[in-house]
Design a protein around this nucleic acid. Structure first.
Lengths: 164, 164
DNA sequence: GAATTTACGTCAGCCTTGTTGACTTTCCAA
DNA sequence: TTGGAAAGTCAACAAGGCTGACGTAAATTC
């Protein structure tokens, strides 16, 4: 990143460029959550339920404390969400065999159905954006997002299935 | 986007790739808001106040209803935030000259100071991410985010100063 | 074997930020 | 002059964060 006045490497770090990026994150995140939110409104669930379903699907058999560190909320907050999902038969919680203090979480058939519906909607938007922007843009997108994470979050992110 | 099996143009649209993108958005957004949140905790303000300050700074003299459509919340919700900012002397609200029903919003000196502090923190993270990823990645990042917005949001986004 | 720590669950209460609905005041424009 | 838009306000509520305190079972340590 040489400091050549007027050079391209300097240009994209101007105040204006950075503010534009900030605003892009703000507006894009709204789009990102819009479709699942729409599906969930009317049901008794919200964005927090969606997140739990997503990560349980993604890391089946995960423990509660692992989920806590992924989501970055308190156990009281997660528990409120998890309880309703278990009561409604979307999530199954079972004692660990190696360590019986732990609870391992899985989606039930019913849970898989809802997760799939939410995920389909969210992926459809993602797919459209990827298609519109093209493969090179997608790579850049992922690079910048990854660089924006806190190191701890980046660790979590990379642990979730090395695939992708 | 030719459907050639195994081809690069298909590869990046796999379910796994899309889920990875979704998770990247989730974790990155956490980082994106972390620094301002940290600054605001302890003050009587929150993320909603930050957003109001940001967009008033960005579009000085904007009306309340314009701000409403940018932020996408109800006027009652915005009003609660705006009222405290005005009472605390961070925002100045003045009757429109052409149309006296409208209120035009500006940051005061004090408001500019806080906005700058929050913005500095957020831009610092953005700058670091941009530096780490490089100019090409930044362009891709912006392209994908823009494609992810709802059309209405994209309009708002593009109206905020064509510069950037 | 007793004491401590860990993982989880739960009760109670609080805060921020979003929502609806109802209503008023002000003021522009047909 | 009247209808409707813009702004503001009150009240009530919900989602989803938070802290603090406490309980229980299981694992670990002394």
């Amino acid at each position: 990143m040489v400091e050549r006045p007027g050079g391209e490497s300097l240009l994209f770090l101007t105040d204006e460029q950075l503010r534009k990026g900030i605003e892009a994150m703000f507006f894009a995140y709204r789009g990102f959550t819009a479709d699942p939110d729409r599906i969930l409104e009317g049901m008794d669930y919200g964005r927090a339920h969606h997140r739990a379903l997503h990560f349980i699907h993604r890391a089946p058999g995960t423990t509660v404390s692992n989920l806590l560190s992924i989501l970055g909320v308190t156990k009281q907050s997660l528990n409120r969400v998890l309880r309703t999902l278990i009561e409604d038969g979307l999530v199954r919680s079972e004692k660990g065999k190696a360590d019986a203090r732990e609870r391992h979480l899985h989606l039930t058939e019913k849970g898989l159905v809802l997760e799939r519906e939410l995920s389909d909607a969210q992926r459809a938007r993602m797919r459209a954006a990827y298609r519109a922007a093209g493969p090179a843009a997608v790579a850049g997108f992922r690079q910048v997002l990854e660089a924006m994470m806190d190191p701890e979050m980046r660790r979590q992110y990379n642990r979730l299935r090395e695939g992708g």
